[in-house]
Design a protein around this nucleic acid. Sequence first.
DNA 1: ATATGTGCAAAGATTTTGCGACCCT
DNA 2: AGGGTCGCAAAATCTTTGCACATAT
Lengths: 161, 161
Amino acid sequence: MHPLRRVRIQPDMDFEKRLEWFRNECAAAGLPCTHQREVLYRALVEAKDHPSPEMLYERVKRKIPSISLGTVYRNIKIFLDHGLIGEVSLHHGSLRLEANNEPHHHLVCRHCRKMFDLPAAGVHAIRLRRALPEGFQVERFVVEAHGLCQECAAPKKRRSN
Amino acid sequence: MHPLRRVRIQPDMDFEKRLEWFRNECAAAGLPCTHQREVLYRALVEAKDHPSPEMLYERVKRKIPSISLGTVYRNIKIFLDHGLIGEVSLHHGSLRLEANNEPHHHLVCRHCRKMFDLPAAGVHAIRLRRALPEGFQVERFVVEAHGLCQECAAPKKRRSN
DNA sequence: ATATGTGCAAAGATTTTGCGACCCT
DNA sequence: AGGGTCGCAAAATCTTTGCACATAT
């Protein structure tokens, strides 16, 4: 056919690649790649708004009206456990508070989720390389250093240093 | 008395200053400074572990056994609304997800809490000024730029530019 | 004195889980 | 065929709220 037609970019091309990756990851993890999981994963890839489980449920239901919210939650957890998707904050689920009003950042253990304060003076000022999108007015930068705390990093039986 | 005695640092001195500030803030906001609020605020100042409402409830109950969890929640919300304390994450309350596995940071609107992605390339690498405490092993830095999005920054009636 | 806060308990919101039927490999 | 998943509904968490009484200024 017409050459111009053939090179036209497919909007779903990127998703097809991701889907292939997703299927490989599922196979590698021994996870059955069910229709529900594929549709849910697609909804996640296409979402640009960091959706909540409930929002995903609404979207997936348009494709699979019989799907249940429990399945959405179950699969989200499985995806997270296998690193197929990410969660925006490591501290959802319960409000966590602090009275420390000095500027500071946080160290967060990705395993036990304990948090430690990191005085702002310990981090060089954040500098942007390019303009922000969409007229967003930044008031402050909050840095979270994610990693493992001493306890969680230590092997179960520690032998020396 | 003995001069050395008189300069000894009081462990609560810092808290006393903060309590005074707290009382002034309450007065300025027209908030009655009740016993429950003072004890709750003290628990927050003394906490070093970014406590949840439930954890605070347990601690405050040791001083005021009759206090209710509802009061703890109510006052936490009031403290937050008046900027007397801070919350660790702007996204508690509901899990928020993303399939974007490219390194990136987030812009978060402190008002409507919408999030926008900020490619990692848009931010200079984070550099630490000093060693981290306690053997913490950092794997990655996550930056949140907090501020106001275009919609929330705009005055209700926009006139020009 | 009066407006506001408090304790209690019920309601609302969010997330997890047990169970029998069903689907991927 | 068989282990894991699905839909459903109940349970477990986390948070908010209405009401009658108590408290701060």
